[in-house]
């Protein structure tokens, strides 16, 4: 088996993994779990960009999406609250700001 077939198969598998991780990140009620699932999606995308022979895109993508973006979100979660409850949704929809 040639190693080019293996490289294309790995690109497909990691793209599939990123779709599953993104779906779970949108649907989870615990906001810290969503941050971790978003980091897994970024690691899968870093592998795809590496296999497409683009090192400058990998450097910028990993630095922003695994390094800076979870930092800002965790600082935000410390202020707001960790769980997304029905009470927050009622307050948003009812216009009671």
């Amino acid at each position: 088996m040639d190693y080019v077939d293996l490289i294309f198969a790995m690109m497909g598998l990691s793209a599939l993994l990123s779709v599953v991780a993104t779906a779970l990140a949108i649907r989870s009620k615990d906001l810290l779990n969503a941050v971790i699932f978003s980091s897994v999606q970024s690691v899968a995308y870093a592998l795809i960009y590496f296999l497409l022979l683009a090192p400058d895109i990998v450097l910028v993508y990993v630095a922003v999406s695994v390094g800076i973006y979870p930092l800002i979100l965790i600082l935000l979660i410390k202020k707001v609250g960790r769980y997304e409850t029905k009470q927050n949704w009622e307050q948003l929809k009812g216009g009671d700001v």
Binding site: L32, S39, V43, A46, F50, L53, P55, V58, L59, V62, A63, V66, G67, P70, L71, I74
Partner: peptide, 21 residues
């Protein structure tokens, strides 16, 4: 041979995710 710089960056930022949590 230029593609080897991508793994240093990955190691350092994954370590910092540990520290944030």
């Amino acid at each position: 041979p230029i593609m080897i710089v991508c793994s240093v960056v990955l190691i350092l930022w994954i370590y910092s995710l540990d520290i944030y949590v």
